[in-house]
Amino acid sequence: MCVLVVVPTGAGAAPLPPVVAGCCGCHAVHGGDRALPLLAGRSASQIVAEMKAFRTGARPATVMGRIAKGFTPDEIAAIAAWYAGQR
């Protein structure tokens, strides 16, 4: 289903932090594919914990292990906070 979403620039729409731009390539906020996990609205602590598990290899993955290693804890926190704020 193609859903067109125009994000308003007013209240409620936090601007996309540049560090998140790449994440949205797969983890779209709206209308992402079912096969790829939806992150919008998940709790920030859950996203941080999963990224940490990807970084250490505790959670096996296809590409996420390679990606998670490229971001600092601060950047991961910013990514997580942004997704948590999207509903």
């Binding site: 390539g25 797969c26 779209a28 209308g31 096969a35």
Partner: peptide, 10 residues
Amino acid sequence: HAWFRTATRE
């Protein structure tokens, strides 16, 4: 295939 569907929809 899932990435393609997501990226093109976005």
